[in-house]
């Protein structure tokens, strides 16, 4: 069973959100998701300053096996992207919850996070798959 950190929020489409102390949010995909996709070979990220809404397909994780859309679990403005992924997409495999983060967002409305799953809820959702 893959790791599901309890301090993060989750979307059923396998993205995670970490609320930082400065009120911004960091987004990535879960260890379970990378395990399903296999070895990553390309990652397409949104641009800094892009305005994004919940459910937008904002990024693509492409593995040897398949290309998978990544949906934004939050609304706001992109303030940073993980440029290391350009040369090292395998970070999504080796460190999904750390070095494999995708982008950071200045949130429009932090209360939106309440619509996401906690670790327990996410675990239940993938057990049903």
């Amino acid at each position: 069973m893959s790791n599901i950190p309890s301090e993060l929020k989750y979307a059923t489409s396998h993205e995670w959100v970490r609320l930082e102390s400065d009120g911004t949010a960091t987004i990535g995909i879960t260890e379970h998701a990378q395990d399903l996709l296999g070895d990553m070979v390309f990652v397409e990220l949104p641009d800094v300053d892009d305005s994004i809404s919940v459910g937008d397909d904002v990024a693509v994780a492409e593995s040897v096996k398949a290309a998978s859309d990544i949906y934004s679990p939050v609304s706001g403005t992109v303030i940073a992207i993980n440029e290391e992924l350009e040369d090292a997409p395998e970070l999504l495999n080796s460190d999904a919850f750390g070095g494999g983060w995708l982008f950071k967002v200045k949130l429009d409305d932090a209360s939106e996070l309440e619509n996401l799953l906690d670790a327990e809820g996410y675990k239940n959702s993938i057990d049903e798959d």
Partner: peptide
């Protein structure tokens, strides 16, 4: 076996 960790 599809892979033993990393197919790459």
């Amino acid at each position: 076996p599809i892979n033993y960790g990393s197919q790459i």
